[in-house]
Design a protein around this nucleic acid. Structure first.
Lengths: 223, 223
DNA sequence: GAAAATTGTCACAACTTTGTCACACCCCCA
DNA sequence: TGGGGGTGTGACAAAGTTGTGACAATTTTC
């Protein structure tokens, strides 16, 4: 397995590199944002250890750029910092973060957790459930190949979540995770989004989003 | 989804509980190690938030005991402490840890990550007694695989209790404990709930809830 | 930079569930 | 026969959950 370590603190980078090598990883180093992005492009690492404060282009920006194109696991390194930075990292697509100082053992524990968690997803372009078609690229929903309805970003995610779990009651926890990911959300947000999606889904009674009190929502569709 | 929150700091526990409820979780509280273990046994939470420093039996010990019997995800809460404690927690089977103080948002971000990582399938739990099927996930009651009847939260618990003890007379003490737990209940509440469940159970004379004066209730069903 | 679209927050309406209380009904005993 | 205890039923208030709309905040588009 390949790991890309991005840190301008050469001593620290070497310590981390040594730790990874000892665990059998192949290590690639970069000391600034530009080089990091270039190395990612050419080396295709399985994991990126990315310091937030690096020259030329900061870690957050790199994280975002890479995440837009790939689901390579990314662990951010930060100094003890305020929470906005950390949550911002999650929003930009980071998988975990570690605050300095930290020990090699702790780093490896987190690395294992992240790698265990990371899955290569098969990008599905069009999801089909009964009479419902969801085009994930075009953000379009249609019934029996009728006129497509445009969905917003979050509406698309919710519909996707409901279709993946079609015929089952989906708890709000699963919805929040699927739609909002690590930054999370709350019941108000779920409710509002369900309301909006319902207006589109139930427009011609082609399908419905049903609530089971105390449990969650279920997609009702025609077979 | 159910979360068990274990912390003797009642204020903090309430804040955490509020955060989880807002995210749609069902919350169970315990303020010491003994109660925590008991709650884990009876409530089968999907996640445990476990403070390390709690009375009666410390968090590490509880973590270990639970991990030996289950893969329920466990997040440890610690004061800023040395690394040995943290890694010790991982070794005892914790899935993550959070150092106090922390914000609700950070907590939920970690919860999300842990739950995503935990590949616990949601097995459909169906209790079967004679002609009666009780789907504990969907809160549905059905007879001979006929059209399901939706049950409310408490109705489901009562039905579950009666089915577990099918063919026996269940005292109101057992019912109260099973349905309402430690907060308890009274005979009025039992009577009203039995009345409501009876309306659903006895609708087509497929089953019955029988009272034995002075003793309790018994589920009558077809073999 | 402005306009449009989307998302989040909040208030309140609407609906469902639960708890409380009153009273009816039944059985048993003095 | 009257009273007490136990159980069943219904009404309604209280509590909890979900739906809806308005508008502010944020993001996206041109």
């Amino acid at each position: 397995m390949k790991v890309l370590i991005v840190d301008d603190d050469r001593t620290l980078a070497d310590v981390i590199a040594f730790t990874f090598k000892r665990e059998g990883f192949e290590v690639i180093l970069a000391e600034d944002g530009e080089l990091a992005y270039q190395k990612w492009e050419t080396e295709h690492p399985d994991l990126i250890i990315l310091d937030v404060n690096i020259p030329k282009e900061d870690g957050f920006s790199i994280c975002k750029r890479i995440r837009e194109q790939s689901d390579t696991p990314i662990i951010l390194l930060t100094v003890r910092s305020d929470e906005e930075d950390i949550l911002g990292g999650f929003q930009l697509g980071a998988d975990d973060y570690i605050t300095k100082p930290f020990s090699p053992r702790q780093l490896m524990a987190r690395v294992r957790a992240v790698l265990r968690r990371s899955k290569k997803k098969n990008p599905t372009t069009v999801r089909q459930v009964g009479n419902i078609s969801l085009n994930l690229n075009r953000h379009e929903l249609s019934f029996d190949n009728q006129q497509p309805i445009q969905l917003s970003g979050l509406e698309l995610r919710l519909m996707d979540c409901l279709m993946i779990n079609a015929g089952q009651i989906v708890t709000s926890e699963i919805i929040i995770d699927h739609v909002w990911g690590p930054q999370g959300g709350d019941m108000d947000m779920v409710r509002q989004l369900v309301h909006r999606l319902r207006l589109k889904v139930e427009k011609d009674s082609q399908a419905a989003i049903n609530n089971v009190p105390g449990l969650g929502y279920e997609l009702i569709y025609k077979k």
